[in-house]
């Protein structure tokens, strides 16, 4: 099993590598397109700010390359947001794999933003999330994807929103499976087995 983690200024790649290593997988971290194309599975991590990161992906020509991939791809956190069409974070045009827009959380009462900590998955409906209904995973984000037809999980913070999406071979999660203890390891294991 060859797992490629897309290398760019994504922040948390070491955590993703560590989590896969704990599952007995030895992933490769690369921005080489041939290497990525030859992988069985691809992980697209992300921590940071949308506009800067999209610029970087455009420079590396990854912004047009990633949507062309045919094997299962898993976007994580900012990775999920960048796979959408547009983000309110600095008015950023994203890759558009999903016809979805990313919005900023607006507190209704005294809720704090970012949404930071452990929250549950609801309405799970994909092999990626088998066994994860009502399980806790770790979130850190200020922008979110509203409920939509591509949703494979929802979470409630301020209001219910979409915390995981799937279309064809593209999967993405708003939370950090690599930091979500046993539940997170299960998701990564599910992804490996897709």
């Amino acid at each position: 099993m060859k797992i490629a983690i897309i290398k760019y200024n994504a922040g948390n790649t070491q955590s993703v590598i560590n989590a896969l290593t704990r599952l007995g997988i030895d992933p490769i971290l690369t921005d080489d397109k041939q290497e990525i194309l030859s992988a069985d599975k691809v992980i697209f991590p992300g921590v940071g700010e949308a506009a800067t990161t999209m610029n970087h992906l455009n420079e590396l020509k990854l912004a047009e390359f990633i949507p062309s991939l045919k094997q299962p791809v898993l976007g994580i956190c900012l990775g999920m947001q960048l796979m959408c069409r547009y983000s309110e974070e600095n008015n950023t045009k994203c890759m558009g794999i999903f016809e979805l827009d990313v919005l900023k959380f607006k507190p209704l009462n005294s809720e704090q933003v970012p949404h930071m900590g452990w929250n549950t998955l609801k309405n799970t409906s994909s092999p990626l999330l088998t066994g994860l209904e009502d399980e806790h995973v770790y979130f850190v984000h200020s922008y979110y994807v509203p409920l939509n037809d591509n949703s494979i999980a929802t979470t409630d913070y301020i209001h219910p929103y979409c915390s995981a999406i799937n279309k064809d071979n593209f999967y993405a999660v708003q939370f950090h499976p690599e930091k979500s203890s046993i539940a997170g390891a299960r998701i990564l294991d599910n992804f490996i087995k897709l």
């Binding site: 900590g117 929250n119 549950t120 609801k122 009502d134 806790h136 409630d156 913070y157």
Partner: peptide, 8 residues
């Protein structure tokens, strides 16, 4: 269900 209080 909601965001959980954290013990650190």
């Amino acid at each position: 269900m909601m965001l959980k209080k954290r013990i650190i």
